[in-house]
Design a protein around this nucleic acid. Structure first.
Lengths: 221, 221
DNA sequence: TAGATTGTTAATCGATTAACAATC
DNA sequence: TAGATTGTTAATCGATTAACAATC
């Protein structure tokens, strides 16, 4: 199910989606040697109100100090913890096409703290090959691999037509989250396994709307 | 500026972000030969309320028919139009690394209706090479190229450290939108040029939150 | 005509912003 | 102590849902 609909998330999805941004900004501050920041200063940098930042950070109880602000390093670590970056989770990639290979390469920087354990594909010509030190396994072993190794997250980089079938398989095998790069919405049914979509095309069209809207507005003037 | 903050968007950003999803679902219906759909039926398929769908489609005035529903093909074309898919816009790609090449290849399917006009890179070893029929141009020609050819959208697939500098350049040259794949938030300042981010890492961490939260909840029980 | 379904208005719900007491 | 700033409560704003008259 889409993250927007997961019950018992403790924080609202709006807050959750801002946490990685805070984390990035705090890393920038750390790199600059800034050790302390107030909600007003951080708000100015990020284009958010100080009020919102304090509301958002109420999940990090005890980190802020009245009259002082937040210790950057402490807050950063607390956010990283909330986001599960300290937990040694495991992931597998399904689909070793162009996109899959890109994700393989960049995984360690994109998903710091996670471990990519295996890569699966349906193409017999790829199976057995080793790419970036990762052997490509047959998709027919997908379920048993997830079960045996207690994999946490499945990354879906398969053709659109295969997406739901694979989603069903990994859900059935006990996966705990799906990172979906296919251009379709997948369902995890009863299981309520969370699905995060990266829909390139949707993202692009959203941007495109603003150009078209701008043109429509200009045409009227 | 982030799409969330663009003024005079006519539709709320929440509605806009649902439009591409509607478009996809309508394409699925068309492929199945379904020519007619009601808000209740569409809601059931997509996990939305019929009410929300009718509110969302109030931007497509005249398309719905009482007692009948919506004509799938008509609604689809209207949405495509609202999203600017019929306008022959142009785009350039900046950064011909792994990600850039993937975007080059997939651009025509991801951004249907748009034309990729040129690819830029800073690496002298790449400049002049032809990849997927697209010659790689020198980034030193970026501004003049945009100005001369009236390019609409710039796709940023450069290293994080270069992102803001390039964003400044393309904004200054009169670009109308930025599709940002770098792992940082860029500012377009006064110009209010809309920026759509695709932050892989933020997306992944958002999913990761739910695993961590699930573990925290389990630990308490 | 009777049934179905839209488009829109009103009600509810949730997120953001403002205000301020607590306190470092 | 005085000034700064948090954390939280209350107020506002906006999005979603419900209801229903209009009408195909």
């Amino acid at each position: 199910m889409k993250l927007e609909h997961v019950p018992c998330a403790a924080l609202s999805i709006h807050v959750i989606r801002r946490l990685p941004r805070y984390l990035r900004e705090l890393d920038v501050l750390l790199a600059k040697g800034i050790t302390r920041i107030s909600s007003v200063q951080l708000g100015r940098r990020m284009g958010l109100t100080a009020s919102q930042i304090r509301q958002d950070f109420s999940c990090c109880s005890g980190v802020g100090i009245q009259g002082y602000g937040y210790n950057v390093a402490v807050l950063r670590d607390r956010l990283a913890q909330i986001l599960g970056m300290d937990r040694d989770y495991s992931a597998i990639l399904i689909g070793a096409g162009k996109l899959g290979r890109l994700l393989m390469e960049s995984f360690s920087t994109v998903a710091r703290g996670y471990h990519l354990r295996a890569v699966f594909d349906a193409d017999a010509a790829l199976i057995g090959q080793v790419i970036d030190d990762m052997p490509i396994l047959s998709i027919s072993n997908l379920r048993s691999y997830i079960r045996k190794n207690g994999i946490d997250i499945a990354i879906l980089a398969v053709p659109t037509g295969e997406a739901q079938r694979i989603a069903d398989a990994v859900t059935d095998a006990g996966i705990r989250g799906i990172w979906n790069f296919t251009n379709t919405d997948i369902s995890t049914g009863e299981s309520q396994v969370p699905v995060e979509d990266v829909h390139f095309s949707d993202s692009f069209l959203t941007l495109s709307y603003f150009l078209a809207q701008d043109d429509r507005a200009s045409a009227k003037r």
